[in-house]
Computed example of a mutant assay.
Amino acid sequence: MKTLVICSGGLDSVSLAHITANEHQLTRLVSFDYGQRHRKEVDFAEAASRRLGVPFHLIDMRGIGAVLSGSALTDDIDVPDGHYAEETMRITVVPNRNAIMLSIGFGIAVAQGDEAVATAVHGGDHFIYPDCRPAFTRAFDAMQQAALDGYAEIRLHTPFVEHSKAEIVRQGARHGTPFAQTWSCYKGGEVHCGRCGTCVERREAFHLAGVSDPTVYADPDYWTEALAARGQS
């Protein structure tokens, strides 16, 4: 199955790219510049495309991102520290981001003759990000079948949608994902901060998966404090 992968450069999407390259026919990686607070992860996505020998498409969505305001990922708002929690991580929601990106991905897939669009949404994001939930992915796939009816048949591929991040680490490791060549941190410093929700989730996922974490963190031990605090709340 000729498959386009939406790839941010993070652990989940780069793992998906490597898995897809092994199990299907990976055709291209597509990333988006929506005016996010840093572009470090985009560089990791482009590096993944070179490593896997497929074209890389960077879509300029800065004009759209400028009006999707109110998120710590796009505006000058502090990124919260600690484990994912609805009351703190809601500030990292970019309105309708996945729906917009997937629509563009489907358009590219049709134009380039691909058969599927793959995205790395996963179970750990369900309670915070509505456009990562199974109900959304099912509805979006059905909408695209209607939008392309009689013209093209492209399927939405979401292999992680019911999986934890730890399971993504396990699968990524089995398929040779170079985890050190992925970027998760929302803050975009010289190294992963170790304190934001994505860093804590990343560190915990390696621990639960029983896979060695090659990531350099500015605060490598904070994740245990964050998990303890969550358990007490």
Rank of each mutant, 00 (worst) to 15 (best):
Y151W: 11
A180R: 14
S233M: 05
G10E: 15
A146D: 03
H175V: 01
R51I: 13
I128H: 02
E162D: 15
E167P: 05
A17C: 12
V30F: 00
A21K: 14
D81K: 12
C132D: 04
E41R: 13
G124V: 02
C196E: 04
A147Q: 05
A139W: 00
R133C: 00
K187H: 07
S31A: 05
E201N: 11
H163N: 15
N96I: 04
E167C: 03
I100L: 12
R51A: 15
L68T: 07
T177D: 00
F56H: 15
G123R: 06
I6V: 15
R37D: 01
V30P: 04
V79G: 05
R138M: 00
V5A: 13
F136L: 00
T74G: 10
M61N: 08
I59Y: 03
I104H: 10
G9T: 13
V42D: 05
C199R: 13
E201K: 12
F106H: 11
I6N: 05
D43I: 14
T182W: 07
E201F: 10
Q181F: 08
G231C: 00
A147N: 07
E153C: 05
F136T: 00
V14C: 14
P159S: 10
L156W: 02
F56N: 04
R28E: 08
P178D: 07
M101G: 03
V211W: 08
R230M: 09
R28V: 01
G53Y: 13
V30D: 02
F140R: 00
G194W: 11
M1K: 12
G63N: 10
W183T: 07
S69C: 06
R39L: 15
C199P: 11
G65S: 07
A180W: 13
L4M: 14
A226N: 13
E86W: 14
A152I: 09
V121N: 09
D125H: 02
V79Q: 09
I6R: 02
A173C: 03
I77M: 03
G210R: 14
A180C: 08
G123S: 07
D78L: 09
D78M: 07
